Computed example of a mutant assay.
Amino acid sequence: MKKILVLAMLIFMLVLGACSKKEDATNQGSVNDGEAPSEFGSIDHGVDENKVGFNLSGGTIEEAANVPAEEKELIIQSFDTYIHAFNNQDIDEYMGTLSEKPKSFDLDEERAYIESVFEQYELSREAKDITIVKFDEETGEAQVFANLVTNMKQKSTGLETSREGRQVTVFTKEGADWKVNSVYYMEEQK
């Protein structure tokens, strides 16, 4: 028992010593301090710029220059169908816009979640500034940026809310169609 108490005191002293070590807080999570950065940054909320192509937190949104006109039309049309299906609460049309092998969600979980949301809320999404920001013909991937306003009204209480945010919807080409493969969203803080 005495050994356990001594060991506990030693561990407590080490933890206390580590906590009181004074360092420059501005370098936390930097390459030089040996500390891992937090999983989700205060600005990008975990959005990996290598996956999305740019930071969602602001700045200028530039259209990808290498998008063939025909593909651009098909990609924007797929994005419009995705938004339209959501607004009409058409679960089958909505699920039809999704990739058969999505990267950031599970199809069965998405169906269950969206059915639950459609059952509980009246919803509408308005997309503005729709821009294809990245296009890779070799991999068959396109990233569509949009500023979104989502209005929600809870059916049971009548409570209404509105959320604004920035979203990048990643599409992959499956056959002749462009399908939603992953979604990155950052809500605007007011």
Score class of each variant (00 low, 15 high):
residue 22 K to Q: 11
residue 104 S to K: 09
residue 98 L to E: 03
residue 132 I to Y: 00
residue 97 T to M: 02
residue 78 S to H: 05
residue 176 A to I: 06
residue 139 T to G: 11
residue 157 T to H: 02
residue 126 E to I: 13
residue 185 Y to L: 14
residue 50 N to V: 04
residue 54 F to D: 09
residue 164 E to G: 04
residue 125 R to E: 15
residue 150 T to Y: 05
residue 117 V to G: 10
residue 186 M to G: 03
residue 26 T to G: 15
residue 105 F to R: 11
residue 23 E to K: 09
residue 164 E to S: 02
residue 90 D to T: 04
residue 57 S to G: 07
residue 38 S to A: 14
residue 45 H to G: 01
residue 63 E to A: 15
residue 159 L to R: 08
residue 75 I to F: 02
residue 77 Q to P: 01
residue 140 G to T: 00
residue 98 L to N: 06
residue 102 P to S: 11
residue 190 K to P: 15
residue 15 V to W: 06
residue 80 D to R: 05
residue 44 D to A: 07
residue 49 E to W: 07
residue 9 M to L: 15
residue 23 E to A: 13
residue 48 D to R: 08
residue 163 R to N: 13
residue 43 I to R: 11
residue 45 H to T: 03
residue 34 G to K: 01
residue 1 M to E: 04
residue 165 G to T: 05
residue 110 E to D: 12
residue 12 F to P: 00
residue 7 L to V: 07
residue 151 N to K: 15
residue 100 E to R: 04
residue 149 V to T: 15
residue 29 G to S: 13
residue 50 N to K: 14
residue 67 V to L: 01
residue 167 Q to I: 08
residue 98 L to G: 04
residue 114 I to K: 14
residue 109 E to R: 14
residue 106 D to G: 10
residue 129 D to I: 03
residue 170 V to Q: 08
residue 105 F to Y: 15
residue 172 T to Q: 14
residue 69 A to Q: 03
residue 135 F to V: 03
residue 170 V to C: 04
residue 53 G to M: 00
residue 189 Q to S: 13
residue 117 V to S: 10
residue 49 E to C: 11
residue 158 G to S: 01
residue 21 K to C: 08
residue 96 G to R: 08
